[in-house]
Design a binder for these strands. Sequence first.
DNA 1: TTGAAAGCGCTAACAC
DNA 2: GTGTTAGCGCTTTCAA
Lengths: 334, 334
Amino acid sequence: MGKKATINDVAKIANVSIATVSRYLSNNGYPIKEQTKKSIKNAILQLSYTPNIVGRMLKTNKSMDIGVIIPTILNPYYPAVIYGIEKKAYEKGYNILLCNSQRDANRQKQYVNTLIQKQVKGLIISSIGDDFLLYSDIVSKGIALVSLEDEISLDKVGQVLFNYEKGAYMAISHLLKLGHKKIAFLTSPLVRKSRKDILKGYIKCLKDNNVTYNKVVEINEENEYENGALLGAKLLLEDDLPTAILAVNDMVAYGVMQYLTQNKVKIPEDISIVGFDDIKISKMMNPALTTISQPSQKTGELAVSMLFDILEGKESKKILLEPELIIRASTKKI
Amino acid sequence: MGKKATINDVAKIANVSIATVSRYLSNNGYPIKEQTKKSIKNAILQLSYTPNIVGRMLKTNKSMDIGVIIPTILNPYYPAVIYGIEKKAYEKGYNILLCNSQRDANRQKQYVNTLIQKQVKGLIISSIGDDFLLYSDIVSKGIALVSLEDEISLDKVGQVLFNYEKGAYMAISHLLKLGHKKIAFLTSPLVRKSRKDILKGYIKCLKDNNVTYNKVVEINEENEYENGALLGAKLLLEDDLPTAILAVNDMVAYGVMQYLTQNKVKIPEDISIVGFDDIKISKMMNPALTTISQPSQKTGELAVSMLFDILEGKESKKILLEPELIIRASTKKI
DNA sequence: TTGAAAGCGCTAACAC
DNA sequence: GTGTTAGCGCTTTCAA
């Protein structure tokens, strides 16, 4: 395979200086004689030369990479976010460095560090906490930072937030309207602010409607796939069973549904269930899942737009996306 | 935010040479006086200095990035592959540059080019075709290349393949065993080799069992989400309806199932359906989907292992992963 | 319209 | 143990 050709090799073969080759490559209207252009072009073809961006980066200090840190790509919500990010980034010529934090604070920190070292232009992060120092370190290095979902108490950080509390409130309202009086909330560990907000909305709506029954079933593990089943099992051990369930997200809802169905609990006949996220497949489930829609792809696109705004020196801002209730077949009048 | 600190700044503050700082940072056992270490450490803290990897890359010509090109992250099969890739890569300290080709040859080419320029150490690519020139260009630049799913007619390319034909054969066998005689194959455009192989397996199994009925329903668009519904609609227009369906992948199967269910066709009572991939959620569907399991996460892990093997100068190889039939509730004896 | 040369931040060979 | 220095591939100023 031999060594890669450099701009020097091209210059030598084309019998011009590297400066001229560089100008040719940058293609910015700098005047070059047609004849010269031609010979450079030939040399490039002959060597099948590809510019080394690292050289340019070192010189210009301009990277075209964006770091993206998400909890886990295995929850389809995030691929949809990434899709939005990548779409917008591609349009602008940026690439995505993808990192899964696995909801592990150390791993997240490590990734942030690596990404800084790699000189990313910006960082989009769906965090697991409010690590003030970590974020201010990023910002102080001139890297544009956009946070997803969880609010961060720091200026100069773009934020694409979602009204989780209201979403939960809407879900519970819907269930109450259907006549349900016993509604449980099934959730992964209540560590993220977003989850706590869902809990808040759940509690608030019950209180506002003078419903005394409430049951929060929480599980310790982070694995959403299996959590649903575990939560379902835990629920069935209770003696005062609910007639309806709010799940912390769609993936968990699926697990619960599957477990209940296997255990002869019919959905929605015996128990109604509402999810959270409205990932694509939710409408393909059978019964299709009633859920709170959180615009995933749009979240990604907005994040990138914000990132570029910050990069252009504009004031960073917060956007609060609003939930929407998607009524499907998994909820039923009691 | 000011300018980022460099190794020079650190050296100046610590009152040592940049060489010493560099040695300190590389932390490779090179002897440094404790006292010196301490003052360097302080300087680094004081400046909140982060090494600039670009400088190192230019010098050492060693990148720690791997490019990953997949068709679309929106089909959950790929996030699972990526999960496997990222897991293994993380262990080795590598990062992932993620690209969605959207099954667009131009976009793919563009991405490959960018990734080469960014000096990735390796490239994992789930391609849309057998672009010999593209691949040999990659290889000739000393970049390790691993191809997923589709076979490539080029040496020095690692390949993690899957026995699609056999998978389809197994699916059809299963359906025949259940007494089905009219089995249709519903598919996205038959452009990828993998899809054509599924078709082959379908045809072959029918022929081997002297079944004359066969019906291939193909759709033109690439969007798997909506394809299922379109395929379902197209199917219902036929006059000689099948009693069973093989879908080209699970996502398509979901769409079909949903459409059929909405149109009063019961699954599996009226029509049995088999998917392909066994993405995580398939067992959470209701009815749970019978499908051919394709080990996605393992595919990703193997790809990375291969990549590192190639990087270490080992002979590149091919691995053919074998399918497994996962029988669930979407298929039924006739 | 072109070239010479400095220098981006870092590593590593060599010298002491 | 530590410092000096060349140079990785590129862009860009300055000069011609």
